[in-house]
Design a binder for these strands. Structure first.
Length: 625
RNA sequence: GGCCCCGUAGCUCAGUGGAUAGAGCAGAGGUUUCCUAAACCUUGUGCGCAGGUUCGAUUCCUGCCGGGGCUACCA
């Protein structure tokens, strides 16, 4: 059943047809600015005034007459207000009943086919934290965005595959290897492995400044890793596996999971890059630079012949023969679309039955391969990597994969930075004149994801009914905090904001859900048909509008790939419910059976909708807190 | 220099080509014989500046100012 807004847009469209307005004229219908105007309003008459050479109010009156005559379902009356708005006043009995019925369906159905099923699979790559250190809140922002986007897409009927890319042949892992070998730093008793590696990473990064010879050691490590089949490669693989396991445990605490772990070393080991290199070379997409500062490198030249500045020339193979990260990413992107003509080997990861990892060597218990071959690829990567992502897209275009290039989405988001207050709390000096400092694992400027969650749990434990509740509410609170900012807004991280338990927080949403669930526990469902009372309380109207808006909020979130749209919606729904809760009499003591039944139904619809929104955001919807 | 992002209330942020631009926090003051007060209510002279497009611009365009990022044989 269409929602009221869609119904009204169609009705206005037909009224416009009736007075001969071009079908291309855009119909806007929005919530009325003030309740006394109505429930929904359209400004179409304003825009038509010039086209029709008539006063807006006169056009509005004509249209209102047509709408009145059309007997639009769920609409009780049409009015016109200056300077020419047309307002719909809803027939509460029919509208409210429809909203409650839809929300009940929502609860019953497993998936919500809101998108007319874009054919094919969407592959979402997220997290992709370098396996050389503990995950911090910057990595967690990435994971929360990616995980939520995947959930939203699945909820709206898409087929989704989630990859977590493991960059185990890159510079950052090599740094830790050099650090462990050269600096003699020991793991402390009780020190988690990922935190130990973070410590080594910070130490070796500082040492490079004074000991350039160490950089040569790093080059040697990288070469051995790329060649494979030696002790260093085995050492790195083991180190990376241990870090990846730590990352998976961390992310699991936030209910973040993956379908497939893809290893950069397999892209090298299985010849993906070799294959991609040949394709790129044969097509002329990359060339060997023979002179200049890039002599000896295989590079992808600039976008256009005119713009041949070095600025836009990207090195894919360094003069020492080692492929850059971007090069391997091109091979990976080709694989994601099924364009490489090669596939990974797949083996289960540990004892998690739902998680598969790529492997260089096949194994007997390999799960059936159903990975890759995506229609659309979404790479969740921070805004600083926009340039290399453009190079990946450009590579697809140069190989004449236009459609796949168009369907390669860099889902860019801004970084997390520390406010001066947060930096001070961590004992980090902030540069004079700056109002924030960027996170940096390399420099130890960070808030570890696990530490933040532990602090949130500690903060919530005092008021939660038990430890398990505190844990899920804390995880939800941290997720909500990292999701509520627009993607292109830098998060100015502040401990007070992130750990707050009142106001616009995940805790508020979960508390509202628990309140609704509490009412449903105490007010029995008499299973009789729900009638709508003759007069709705303003808070009831707002809550009904908010419940009804869920489907649209979901589809808009899916289209924009922007989780903050959904957090904003969910907060609005929870606030509307709190307002209803505070400003209408307690249902448990309601004597009138019609009102009691209706208001219980409204609470049930709210709870179901809020639970659905919370789950789609990757948050728990506890019945009690 | 080129490209990208940001600039809305004291602070952190939503928001929209339409009728009086919203939240949270911080500050002040209130609400509990009542379904969980992690709540609710009261308290607010704010869209960086200047042009342009438009019936209508905080929203779109151009320029400028301020801040951040990218522009590596790192990722």
């Amino acid at each position: 059943m269409p929602d009221t807004r869609t119904l009204l847009i169609d009705a206005v469209r037909r009224a416009l047809d009736a007075i001969g307005v071009d079908a291309a004229f855009e119909v806007v219908v929005e919530r009325s600015a003030r309740p006394e105007f109505g429930d929904w309003s359209t400004p179409v008459a304003l825009g038509l005034a010039r086209i029709l050479h008539r006063a807006p109010a006169a056009i509005a009156a004509d249209l209102a007459a047509h709408l009145e005559a059309a007997q639009v379902p769920r609409v009780r009356a049409w009015t016109v207000t200056p300077p020419g708005y047309i307002n719909a006043h809803l027939d509460d009995a029919r509208w409210a009943a429809a909203v409650l019925a839809s929300a009940t369906v929502l609860e019953a159905s497993g998936t919500l086919d809101l998108e007319s099923a874009a054919a094919g699979k969407t592959l979402v790559e997220h997290t992709a934290t370098n396996p050389n250190k503990a995950a911090h809140i910057g990595h967690l922002r990435n994971a929360c965005i990616g995980d939520t986007v995947a959930r939203v897409l699945r909820r709206t009927g898409h087929v989704v595959e989630v990859n977590n890319y493991i960059d185990d042949t890159g510079v950052q892992v090599a740094d830790v290897v050099v650090g462990i070998r050269e600096l003699g730093i020991e793991q402390m008793p009780d020190e988690p492995f990922d935190q130990y590696c973070s410590r080594v990473y910070i130490a070796i990064s500082a040492r490079y400044e004074t000991d350039a010879a160490l950089l040569e050691r790093r080059r040697a490590v990288l070469r051995e890793v790329e060649e494979g089949g030696n002790a260093t490669a085995v050492f790195v693989k083991d180190l990376a596996r241990r870090i990846v396991n730590a990352h998976l445990v961390t992310m699991r605490r936030f209910d973040i999971a993956y379908d497939l772990l893809t290893w950069e070393s397999d892209i090298i080991g299985l010849g993906f890059w070799r294959q991609a290199f040949e394709l790129l070379r044969e097509s002329g997409a990359i060339v060997l630079a023979e002179s200049g500062k890039l002599a000896g490198c295989w590079v992808m030249p600039a976008e256009t012949a005119e713009d041949d500045s070095d600025d836009d020339t990207k090195v894919l193979v360094k003069s020492d023969g080692i492929a850059t990260y971007t090069a391997k990413d091109i091979a990976y992107q080709l694989w994601k679309f099924g364009l490489l003509g090669r596939d990974f080997n797949y083996v289960p990861w540990g004892d998690d039955p739902a998680l598969v990892t790529t492997a260089t060597v096949p194994r007997g218990d390999a799960p059936p391969a159903h990975f890759g071959h995506a229609q659309r690829v979404i790479n969740v990567i921070d805004a600083r990597q926009a340039y290399p992502q453009r190079v990946v897209q450009r590579a697809l275009r140069r190989l004449h994969h236009e459609r796949e290039a168009d369907n390669s989405i860099h889902l860019s988001y801004e970084v997390v930075a520390l406010t001066p207050a947060a930096a001070a709390e961590l004992g980090i000096e902030i540069e004079e004149g700056r109002d924030s400092v960027a996170l940096s694992g390399r420099r130890g400027i960070e808030v570890r994801a696990d530490d933040l969650l532990d602090r949130a749990i500690a903060r919530l434990s005092a008021n939660a009914r038990d430890a398990a509740t505190a844990t899920v509410v804390a995880a939800g609170a941290v997720r909500y905090y990292l999701l509520k900012f627009s993607l292109n807004q830098i998060i100015a991280f502040d401990f007070d904001d992130a750990l707050r338990v009142t106001g616009d927080t995940g805790v508020y949403l979960q508390y509202a859900h628990a309140r609704a669930a509490g009412i449903l526990r105490k007010v029995a469902d008499d299973a009789l048909p729900v009638d709508v009372p003759s007069a709705l309380h303003p808070a009831e109207r707002e809550l009904l509008h908010s419940v009804e808006a869920y489907a649209r909020a979901l589809t808009e979130t899916a289209h924009a790939l922007s989780p903050s749209l959904l957090t904003t919606y969910a907060f609005g729904l929870a606030a509307a419910f709190s307002d209803f809760y505070e400003h209408t009499p307690a249902i448990v003591r309601e004597e009138d059976p019609v009102i009691r039944r209706f208001r219980r139904g409204l609470v049930a619809a709210t709870r179901a909708t809020l639970a659905d929104a919370l789950h789609t955001l990757g948050m728990a919807a506890p019945d009690q807190v």
